[in-house]
């Protein structure tokens, strides 16, 4: 072939073979142009758009997540505040109840003490009344006895010894 003959003639010069200079340049330019058209018309717009969309989506998701986190933190704070309030309220109730109970106990104790005091006073009074009564009766009987003794002394003369004996007997009678 003519081409082979030409190549043989320029043996070792293949690399700078200018036989197809125009063909090389033309077809390289055409191939490059076609590829650049495909890239600029379809591939790059589509891929750039989808990359931007994804970036936007990720940014949105991050923002949403951040907002959610802040929301959660707020509600946690609110919950903790409520919890603290409830705890305070509970301890208030407990201490109130304690005070109330103490009051009740104190009142009851006071009442009991009063009651006991009253009963003791009553008993003391009763005892004293009985005592006074007894004394009064005793006095009366002693007086009566003294009258009787005097009568006897007046009616029958008795020595001292007999008188004593009589008196004792009278007292004994009285006591029994």
């Amino acid at each position: 072939m003519a081409v082979d003959a030409h190549a043989a003639a320029t043996q070792g010069m293949d690399l700078f073979n200018t036989a197809f200079l125009h063909s090389q340049i033309f077809w390289t330019a055409v191939a490059f142009g076609l590829m650049m058209f495909i890239m600029a018309w379809k591939v790059l717009p589509v891929i750039t758009a989808i990359l931007d969309e994804r970036a936007e989506r990720i940014r949105n998701d991050l923002d949403t997540a951040d907002a959610k986190r802040q929301e959660a933190e707020l509600s946690l704070a609110a919950y903790e505040k409520k919890l603290a309030e409830a705890k305070g309220e509970a301890s208030d109730i407990v201490s109130e109840a304690r005070v109330e109970a103490k009051k009740l106990v104190d009142a009851r104790l006071g009442e009991l003490e009063d009651e006991l005091k009253r009963r003791r006073d009553e008993a003391t009074k009763a005892i004293e009344a009985t005592k006074a009564q007894a004394m009064k009766e005793l006095q009366g009987q002693v007086a009566e006895l003294a009258v009787q003794v005097t009568e006897k002394l007046l009616t029958e003369s008795v020595d001292a010894k007999k008188a004593e004996k009589l008196t004792n007997q009278a007292v004994k009678n009285l006591v029994n």
Partner: peptide, 30 residues
């Protein structure tokens, strides 16, 4: 001008065509 299609042309178009198709296929339904 001698704009003959050569083996240079053919393989350049095969390579560039394959890569272009690859790019088109990958961005077909993004």
């Amino acid at each position: 001008f001698d704009l003959s299609v050569t083996n240079h042309t053919m393989w350049l178009f095969i390579g560039v065509g394959l890569v272009s198709l690859l790019m088109l296929w990958g961005s077909r339904r993004a």
